[in-house]
Deep mutational scan, measured.
Amino acid sequence: NLYFQGLKYMVPGARVTRGLDWKWRDQDGSPQGEGTVTGELHNGWIDVTWDAGGSNSYRMGAEGKFDLKLAP
């Protein structure tokens, strides 16, 4: 699974964008943008601060869902 392989790169400072299971509307800005991981992966959740200004926790394994992917 590509998403599980990418988890080791989901570290503080990593750049991310919305992924396969995104369901959080425009939390990442409008139009959709990139963000920066600000915390360690914990119980399948990870913290992100978006360039647009907001921050929140997103699923990276929790509930079998992956809200994020590494930015290109």
Rank of each mutant, 00 (worst) to 15 (best):
A62P: 01
Y3A: 14
S30I: 14
N1H: 14
T36E: 06
A52N: 11
R59Y: 02
I46E: 00
L7S: 09
V11E: 08
D26Y: 07
W45T: 01
G39F: 05
A52S: 12
D28T: 05
F4C: 15
L68T: 00
T17C: 15
F66I: 05
K65Y: 07
L70Q: 07
K65A: 13
D47C: 15
F4Q: 14
F66L: 05
N1I: 12
W45R: 03
D51N: 03
D21K: 03
T38R: 08
G33Y: 05
H42I: 13
G39S: 14
D67P: 01
G29T: 05
W45D: 00
D28F: 04
G13S: 04
P31D: 08
G61N: 02
G35P: 01
G13Q: 04
V11G: 08
L2D: 15
G64Y: 07
H42V: 14
L70Y: 09
D26Q: 09
K69L: 13
M10W: 13
P72E: 13
L20W: 12
G33E: 06
T38M: 11
W50T: 01
G13K: 03
Y9K: 09
G39N: 09
D47I: 13
G29E: 06
S30R: 12
I46Y: 02
E63R: 08
P12C: 15
E34I: 14
W50V: 00
Y58A: 02
K23N: 09
E40H: 13
D21M: 04
R18H: 04
M60Q: 02
T49H: 10
K65P: 01
L41Q: 07
Q32R: 12
K23D: 10
K8I: 13
G39D: 06
E40N: 13
N56Q: 08
G39C: 11
G54W: 08
V16H: 01
M10G: 03
S57N: 09
T36R: 07
D51Y: 02
W50K: 00
V16Q: 00
N1Y: 09
Q5A: 13
G13P: 03
I46V: 11
Q32E: 10
E34D: 08
G35N: 02
E63Q: 13
L41V: 09
Y58W: 02
L68I: 09
G13D: 01
Q27L: 06
L7V: 11
N56V: 04
E34Y: 14
R25P: 08
R25S: 14
T36K: 05
E34W: 14
V37L: 07
T36G: 01
G33W: 06
V16L: 00
D51H: 04
F66M: 07
M10R: 05
G39Y: 03
A52I: 07
V11M: 09
L20H: 13
G19R: 07
E63I: 05
V11A: 09
G44C: 03
R59L: 02
D67R: 01
Q32I: 08
H42G: 07
K65H: 06
D28S: 06
L20A: 13
E40W: 14
G54Q: 11
T49R: 11
G19M: 06
V48W: 02
N1C: 15
N1M: 10
E40S: 12
L20R: 14
R25D: 15
E34H: 13
Y58M: 03
G6H: 15
S30T: 14
E34T: 13
T49G: 05
D51K: 04
H42R: 14
N43G: 10
P12W: 09
K65G: 05
G29L: 05
W24R: 04
Y3D: 15
D21H: 11
G13L: 04
R18E: 01
M10E: 04
L7C: 15
K69M: 14
A71T: 10
M60A: 06
S55C: 15
G53F: 03
G19I: 07
G44P: 01
F66N: 02
L20C: 15
P12G: 07
D28I: 05
P72G: 13
T36A: 04
T49A: 10
W50I: 00
S30K: 13
A71K: 09
R18N: 01
P31G: 08
G35R: 00
Q27P: 05
W24Q: 04
Q32P: 15
G53T: 02
D47Q: 15
R25F: 14
A71Y: 07
L68F: 02
Y9G: 09
Q32C: 15
V16C: 03
K69N: 11
F4G: 12
D28W: 05
W24Y: 10
S30A: 11
G53D: 02
L70I: 10
E40T: 13
E34F: 14
K65D: 02
G54E: 10
W22R: 03
T38E: 06
N43P: 03
G13N: 05
I46W: 03
S57V: 11
L7H: 09
Y3Q: 15
P31M: 08
V11L: 09
A62E: 03
W24K: 04
K8D: 12
S30N: 14
A71W: 07
W50N: 00
W50L: 01
S57G: 07
L70W: 09
G44E: 01
K23Y: 06
F4Y: 14
V16M: 01
L20N: 13
